[in-house]
Amino acid sequence: MSVGRKNWLFAGSDSGGETLSWAMSLVETAKMNGLYPPAWLAEILDRIHNHMTNPLNEPLPWNRTPMI
């Protein structure tokens, strides 16, 4: 655990640490909902890119079926 805490020292800045915490929260939320985080994040980024045609609330982790 102490290694993980020390990694936060190198986030670069306060805003970098905040961005990292958002990213880690997304990954952990996907895991808790039974999703494979890399595939889910790729889908999210694709939907954000096409945000005018796709509703953004559909791919949220709690609205998806687990990929087990």
Rank of each mutant, 00 (worst) to 15 (best):
1 M>V: 05
2 S>W: 06
3 V>R: 13
4 G>R: 11
6 K>V: 13
7 N>K: 15
7 N>F: 13
9 L>A: 15
10 F>C: 09
12 G>N: 05
13 S>W: 08
13 S>D: 08
14 D>P: 03
14 D>T: 08
16 G>K: 05
17 G>M: 13
18 E>G: 05
20 L>V: 04
22 W>R: 12
23 A>W: 06
24 M>S: 12
25 S>W: 15
25 S>Y: 15
26 L>P: 01
28 E>S: 15
29 T>F: 11
30 A>Q: 10
31 K>L: 13
32 M>G: 06
32 M>K: 14
33 N>G: 14
36 Y>E: 13
37 P>M: 10
38 P>H: 04
38 P>R: 03
38 P>M: 05
40 W>N: 02
40 W>S: 06
41 L>Y: 04
41 L>N: 02
44 I>N: 00
44 I>Y: 00
44 I>Q: 02
44 I>M: 04
45 L>M: 11
45 L>E: 13
47 R>Q: 07
48 I>D: 00
48 I>C: 01
49 H>V: 03
50 N>E: 04
51 H>T: 02
52 M>D: 06
53 T>F: 00
54 N>S: 04
57 N>R: 03
57 N>D: 07
58 E>D: 08
59 P>C: 02
59 P>L: 02
60 L>G: 03
60 L>N: 04
63 N>V: 04
64 R>G: 01
65 T>Q: 15
